[in-house]
Design a protein around this nucleic acid. Structure first.
Length: 563
RNA sequence: GCGCCUGUAGCUCAGCCGGAUAGAGCAACUGCCUUCUAAGCAGUAGGCCGUGGGUUCGAGUCCCGCCAGGCGUGCCA
C-alpha cells in the first residue's frame, strides 16, 4: 500500500518549507510565500522531482524567482532524505535527484506489497454500484456494448484497487415498449415462417435482425405451430418469456467469455411488479413536483436544471422508462444503500445524466451520489470504410462474432486503450490480427521476457534476493533510474484512473512501463554483470514483473510467462 | 436553435492541478541478434497543438467568439 512517488513529493515539500522557514527566520527572505507544487519533470536532466516554489512565490515576495530559489536551495538539508542533491534550473525550478535511499525504499515497498502494490484504501470501503453494458435483451450485443463492458469491468477493478467495495450490476430492460416490440417481431416471424411472408405484416418499428428469425425457428422446433392457437396476448407473453430467457442467457454467456461477471442482474420488471415505481412516483408527487397535462403525468424537471419537463406516466397509463429509471436509482442508493452509483453509458445516452440527477434531487437524494462514465461510441472501420452499426439492420458485427476471431486479451486491451471522451476506432483488420501491431503483445512480451530471464538465472543458481540485501544505489544509470521512476508511478496512476473514471490510464501506464523495461533490458546486461550489480538489476527486474502483473490483472489481461 | 463530446505529426492517439526544448505507436528511411526472448532496442524524417481574441512571469492546457465533425434534444428506451 505504499506510494513512493507521493512520499517523495511530500518530502520535497517539507524540505522546501523547512528551508524557507529558515530563510525567513534569518531574514534572508520575507514571509508569506505559499508552498508551490511538485511534479515529475518530463526531461530526466531536470531531476526526478521538481518544485516550482520559487516561481509561485515570486509575486508575493516581489523578488525574481531565481534569486528566491538560490537562497532557499542554500538552506536545503538533504541528509537522511530520499534525495542526494538538488539544483536550480530554468526560470527558478528547484530540481531534486533521487539517492540510494529512495531506490532502496521503492524496491522494498514493491517486495513487501507484492500483489497489493498499487492498491490503496483511499476508498475507505465505501460501497459503490457500477452498472454497465445493460444491453437491451432484444438481440445480440454490439461492439458498443463491448466497449462498455470492458470499460465498466476495468473501472470496477480500479475502484476496488483503491479501496471501494464494488458491486457489478447489469440492468435488464425487460419491460416497456422495446420489449413489447420484440414480442411482436417474433410473432410476426413465427407466423411468416409457418404461413408465408404475406400472412402477417411485419411491425413498422420491429426488429429486423436475423436473430429474430432464429428465435421464431427455435419456437417452431420446440412448440410447432401450437402457439398460433393461443389468444394473441398470451401468445406474445409466451414468446417474450422465451426470448428474454434466451437472450439474457446469451448475454451472460458472451460476457463470461469476455471475462466479465456480475454480482447482480437486476430486472426492470421487478420495479414495476413490486409497485416500487408507483411508490417512487408518489414520493415525487408528495414533494409537489408532478402535474397533469394532456392526460399524462409530468415531472417538473425544469425545477432541477433540465431544459424541459418530462412525462412520467403516459396517457395510455404506462410508465415511461424515465420513471422506472428514477425508481431504479432510488433503489440502488436508498433501498440497497450504496454510497455511490456509477452508470457506464454510451455518449448517445448523455442526456440521461442530467435527467437522472434531477429525478434523484426530486426525491431528496443527493445527485452527487450518482456519477456517469460516458464513453464515445465505437467507430467501426473495415477496408477503410466506416461501417454503421445498427441492431435493426441485422448486419452489425456482434460481440460474439468478435470473440470468435479476436483473443479476449486483445479485445480487453483494445477497448480500454482510449480515453472515454474520444471515439474509439475499431479496425476489424487490425483487431483480428494477433501480431505486434496490437499493443497488448508489447506489454505481455515484457512480462514473458522477464519471467524467462528470471527462470534462466534461477537455473544457474542465481535467485532474486530480498530487497534489504541488495544495493539499489547501484541502479543509478539512465535506463535504470527511468525504470525505477516508472515503477514508482504505478500507485498514483491507479488512483488517478479511479478518481477520473478513466481506466485506459492503466493501459497507457503499462505500455510505458514495458517500454522502460525493454530499454533497460537492452542497455543493461544482467547475467554477466558483477554480482552486486547483477543482484540489484535482477531485483529491479522482479519488481517490474510484479508491477506489470498487477496492472494486467486489473485489466483481466493475462500475463504470460513465455511467448 | 440549445446541450454534451471532439479537433495535436501522413494515420490512430497521449499530454493529470497552467510550467522548462509538444510526445508515443503505426506507416517511411538507417543501423543493432556467435552474447539474458529481435513480439525488442538505437537513430533519421515528419508540427502556425482547428481559428481569432483574452487572462499572466508562463497557455496544447484556463476564459470568450468563430469554423468543422460526432451525439443528444419523443407521451422511444
Amino acid at each position: 500500500m505504499s506510494n513512493l512517488l507521493s512520499a517523495a513529493f511530500d518530502q520535497c515539500q517539507s524540505l522546501i518549507k523547512t528551508a524557507y522557514d529558515t530563510c525567513v527566520a534569518n531574514g534572508s527572505l520575507p514571509a508569506g510565500a505559499g508552498t508551490g507544487d511538485c511534479d515529475v519533470p518530463k526531461e530526466a536532466s531536470h531531476g526526478d522531482v521538481a518544485s516550482n516554489f520559487a516561481l509561485a512565490a515570486a509575486r508575493t515576495l516581489k523578488l525574481p524567482p531565481r534569486a528566491i530559489a538560490e537562497v532557499v536551495a542554500a538552506q536545503l538539508n538533504l541528509h537522511n532524505s530520499y534525495f542526494d542533491r538538488a539544483a536550480i534550473a530554468g526560470a527558478g525550478f528547484i530540481n531534486f535527484f533521487y539517492g540510494a535511499g529512495w531506490r532502496n525504499a521503492l524496491l522494498s515497498a514493491i517486495e513487501q506489497d507484492g500483489q497489493a502494490y498499487g492498491r490503496s484504501d483511499s476508498g475507505k470501503c465505501k460501497r459503490v454500484n457500477v452498472e454497465f453494458v445493460s444491453a437491451n435483451p432484444t438481440g445480440p450485443m454490439t461492439l458498443g456494448n463491448a466497449r462498455g463492458g470492458v470499460l465498466g469491468d476495468a473501472l470496477a477493478s480500479v475502484l476496488e484497487a483503491v479501496g471501494y467495495e464494488v458491486s457489478r450490476e447489469f440492468y435488464v430492460n425487460d419491460a416497456g415498449n422495446q420489449v413489447a416490440m420484440l414480442a411482436q417481431s417474433i410473432r410476426a416471424r413465427y407466423i411468416q415462417r409457418l404461413k408465408g411472408a404475406d400472412a402477417i405484416e411485419f411491425p413498422e418499428k420491429g426488429y429486423h435482425g436475423d436473430d429474430i428469425w432464429d428465435v421464431a425457428d427455435e419456437l417452431i422446433a420446440a412448440r410447432g405451430d401450437s402457439l398460433l392457437a393461443l389468444y394473441e396476448p398470451a401468445c406474445l407473453a409466451e414468446m417474450l418469456s422465451y426470448a428474454l430467457t434466451r437472450n439474457v442467457g446469451r448475454i451472460k454467456t458472451d460476457l463470461a467469455r469476455y471475462g466479465i461477471e456480475y454480482n447482480t442482474f437486476f430486472h426492470e420488471s421487478e420495479l414495476h411488479n413490486s409497485g416500487y415505481v408507483a411508490e417512487t412516483l408518489a414520493l415525487i408527487g408528495e414533494k409537489g413536483h408532478l402535474y397533469e397535462q394532456d392526460g399524462a403525468t409530468w415531472f417538473r424537471a425544469t425545477s432541477f436544471g433540465c431544459e424541459k419537463d418530462e412525462v412520467m406516466v403516459k396517457s395510455n397509463g404506462l410508465y415511461t422508462y424515465y420513471a422506472a429509471d428514477i425508481a431504479y436509482h432510488r433503489n440502488k442508493l436508498e433501498t440497497r444503500g450504496f454510497d455511490m452509483a456509477i452508470d457506464v453509458l454510451g455518449a448517445d445516452h448523455h442526456g440521461h445524466a442530467v435527467r437522472f440527477r434531477a429525478g434523484l434531487e426530486a426525491i431528496g437524494l443527493s445527485a452527487d451520489r450518482l456519477q456517469f462514465a460516458l464513453y464515445q461510441l465505437v467507430h467501426l472501420v473495415r477496408d477503410g470504410e466506416t461501417v454503421r452499426m445498427s441492431k435493426r439492420t441485422g448486419k452489425s458485427i456482434t460481440l460474439s462474432d468478435l470473440l470468435d476471431e479476436v483473443s479476449v486479451d486483445a479485445c480487453r486491451f483494445f477497448f480500454n486503450n482510449r480515453s472515454t471522451d474520444t471515439h474509439l476506432e475499431f479496425d476489424m483488420g487490425l483487431a483480428v490480427r494477433e501480431d505486434s501491431d496490437n499493443p497488448v503483445y508489447y506489454v505481455q512480451y515484457a512480462h514473458a521476457r522477464i519471467c524467462s530471464l528470471i527462470g534462466k538465472l534461477q537455473g544457474e543458481g542465481v535467485t532474486v534476493a530480498p530487497a534489504d540485501t541488495v544495493d539499489a544505489g547501484l541502479l543509478s544509470g539512465e535506463t535504470e533510474t527511468a525504470l525505477l521512476k516508472a515503477l514508482a508511478l504505478y500507485p498514483s496512476e491507479v488512483a488517478t484512473a479511479a478518481a477520473t473514471l478513466q481506466p485506459y490510464r492503466i493501459n497507457r501506464y503499462l505500455m510505458e512501463l514495458a517500454a522502460s523495461y525493454h530499454k533497460f533490458y537492452n542497455a543493461c546486461r544482467i547475467k554477466e554483470a558483477e554480482p552486486a550489480t547483477r543482484a540489484a538489476r535482477l531485483k529491479l527486474t522482479d519488481a517490474t514483473r510484479q508491477t506489470l502483473k498487477n496492472g494486467l490483472s486489473l485489466l483481466k489481461v493475462s500475463a504470460p510467462e513465455s511467448m
